[in-house]
Design a protein around this nucleic acid. Structure first.
Lengths: 281, 281
DNA sequence: AAAATTTTGGAATATTTATTCCAAAAACTC
DNA sequence: GAGTTTTTGGAATAAATATTCCAAAATTTT
């Protein structure tokens, strides 16, 4: 062993985190695994026995003891107390949640906290209002498509990128339609009936995207629309639409719930493919 | 002993609380003390040994065992697990994770619900572990920059797009660095000391981004790193790093918390600018 | 490629921790 | 107030948990 004993091991959890960050690279392989696990799952370290933890991290109990000692603790138990202390603070109760956002005592809450609240509320609403059937129908439409085209501008761009990334990663052919050059009509003409379009658009709605959706619907190309309201102009009766409503903070809307829905759409599409279309040309 | 054994002891902490409220009056004196203490200090019960607790409650260890048994638990340890569960605000990811993928009772929970849950957990964790000071420091560094360069590949791309969009919308000059053409060294040479770099990188880390960060740090260009772990190779001691840990569902990680943090970073940067740099050339 | 050093796993051990059991104390009952 | 039942404390025991130590494996150095 290195026996490089730290005479004053970190007594605060944050200090321990810092220590791990600094010394991580100079740690042996197994101890690195422990470090990663410990930082990602402090609660498990805090509440379980060596035997159970070692099983989860997939190392031997002795490695855990060594890990603690290499930091400077007397042993595993000594280190564990630091993790336990870190859990003692109770996170704010759920009931306060809604009030915190509306209440304008902004001195109390940081920008980060307010945006997290907003994101959390948006996610709750997404769960409540999303039509599971609609999501499945949309996934089915996309799952059947030979190629999926993805369109969206402005605030929707990150969502298009994300969808594209996920489709590609799942082995689904997908093409990003960027609005940089050429008219939308030209782009629509590229899309065939055995393909599909995903259009993402938020208020203020871009004319481009709307134009593209119209052109595709006219050609009977399946269209899945992702919008922030059913009143959005890109929504039609003849397409499949999914709605997300992001809570706003000081006039700014996040994207957390939308990005979550996008991921689900991709995953469900992938699931449909693997079940119904094992080998696609 | 009363030997009035409850055959199904409460497994959820709330149920336990209820049980204690109902049966409190019919409990012997010492056991009442324990009940009161347990309800007031669940964390102490969760995290300590019988010996230590018995000292605090001022009863003997055997009384604690009896207390647990009178409720119906096998012993003190059995009851303690219920208290421990009540403390882990983060529902244990590892055990759930394994079941969720292997267990085929997916009828209970839809894909959407599971991803929403994961996103929600990630947001909670973001709130808990994010260092507000670090966020402010990062915003300050970016606020001072004449131009902000944004780099990130793969799963990080949507985040770069989002940051770029928000910066531009706020009137902050920002440039996306795409990894398509040219070496990273070339790109780093474009960035000056009065500018700044935001690097976003997740496991598996892309060599490109890391290279860029190194080159910038060498040139003393301020670097803000957004990663999924402080142990990420793009984290250095001399940069400003923000950490997000996305919960995974069946091996797939979302982006909801990351996108939320990115928005905050942009907003804080904008705030800093408007306060300290009303008119930038 | 050989030697030295570090790291790792697992059995053996020591320590801690929980549980049992019984006699003493306290609380009821008649 | 004596007898009966319930409750309590503490020693004895059982179980578990953490720690140590050493040989094997994996690195690193020469």
């Amino acid at each position: 062993m290195t026996t490089l004993v730290n005479q004053t091991p970190p007594r605060a959890f944050n200090a321990l985190k810092l220590w791990l960050q600094e010394h991580y690279t100079s740690l042996p392989k197994r101890l690195q695994s422990v470090a990663v696990f410990a930082l990602h799952n402090p609660d498990i370290i805090a509440l379980n026995t060596i035997a159970l933890i070692s099983e989860k991290v997939d190392v031997t109990p002795s490695t855990l003891v060594r890990f603690a000692k290499s930091i400077g603790y007397a042993g595993f138990s000594d280190m564990q107390t630091v993790f336990q202390e870190s859990m003692r603070h109770i996170p704010e109760p759920y009931t306060q949640r809604l009030h915190q956002l509306t209440d304008e005592d902004q001195s109390e809450s940081t920008v980060l906290k307010r945006f997290i609240r907003a994101a959390s509320i948006s996610l709750d609403r997404l769960e409540e209002q999303t039509d599971d059937i609609a999501l499945l129908q949309a996934s089915e439409a996309l799952g059947k498509a030979r190629t999926i085209y993805i369109a969206g501008q402005g605030r929707a761009t990150p969502v298009t990128t994300y969808l594209h990334y996920n489709f590609i990663k799942m082995g689904i052919q997908a093409v990003l339609i960027d609005g940089v050059a050429g008219s939308m009509g030209d782009k629509a003409s590229l899309i065939r009936q055995d393909e599909a379009l995903v259009a993402i658009s938020f208020n203020p709605y871009t004319a481009n995207t709307r134009e593209l959706v119209d052109a595709c619907l006219a050609k009977r190309v399946p269209v899945v629309a992702l919008t922030d309201s059913t009143l959005s102009p890109i929504v039609r009766t003849d397409d499949l639409h999914l709605e997300v409503l992001e809570e706003e903070v000081g006039g700014i809307r996040g994207l957390s719930a939308t990005i979550c829905l996008a991921l689900c759409l991709a995953v469900e599409t992938g699931k449909y493919r693997s079940q119904n279309n094992p080998v696609l040309p």
